[in-house]
């Protein structure tokens, strides 16, 4: 198939993946996409449930987010969600760049831009989830309640 040939051929089974992987790291990413994907289903569905179904997302404000980030369970689960979603999403975007950007120079530039932006955003996410101590978050909540 011409269209399939234009795209990078993707293996369809683990045996194919092992035979076709250009390097052991590519085989590792192929396996990672499946394992992280499996973990992301409950993590992402749970995140959406908490913020869109158990709550009116149109009423989310500072107090709501601060209250969530003060919960250890939210910090831990959202940290795993951030880690796996970033790695899974950035690797998926890398596949897309490799499929659609043909010129090697441009492909390199797109990937470097992606990895740089993703690195900065990931650090920002970790800071947001962990930079505040629980006490600081509690103080912010109490300050809001006192107003």
């Amino acid at each position: 198939m011409a269209s399939a040939g234009a795209r990078a051929q993707r293996p369809r089974t683990f045996a194919d993946a092992r035979a076709m992987a250009s390097s052991s790291s590519e085989l590792g990413w192929w396996v990672f996409m499946r394992i992280s994907g499996l973990l992301l289903v409950p993590l992402a569905f749970g995140h959406l449930w908490a913020n869109n179904m158990a709550f009116n997302a149109g009423e989310i404000d500072f107090a709501y987010v601060a209250g969530r980030l003060a919960q250890p369970s939210v910090k831990i689960l959202d940290s795993f969600l951030l880690l796996f979603a970033m790695l899974h999403g950035v690797n998926g975007l890398r596949y897309s760049i490799e499929d659609y950007v043909k010129r090697p120079g441009r492909r390199f530039v797109w990937k470097m831009v992606l990895f740089t932006v993703a690195g900065i955003v990931f650090v920002l996410g970790v800071m947001t989830l962990w930079a505040f101590s629980f006490e600081e978050m509690g103080d912010a909540m109490r300050a809001l309640g006192a107003e």
């Binding site: 500072f62 987010v65 601060a66 970033m86 998926g92 993703a118 990931f122 920002l124 996410g125």
Partner: peptide
């Protein structure tokens, strides 16, 4: 692709809570 781009945006918007109430 859409979800990956949304994820980047979403982490940035939630990070604004670091600037306080």
């Amino acid at each position: 692709v859409a979800l990956a781009l949304f994820l980047l945006l979403h982490v940035i918007d939630i990070s604004l809570v670091m600037l306080g109430p």
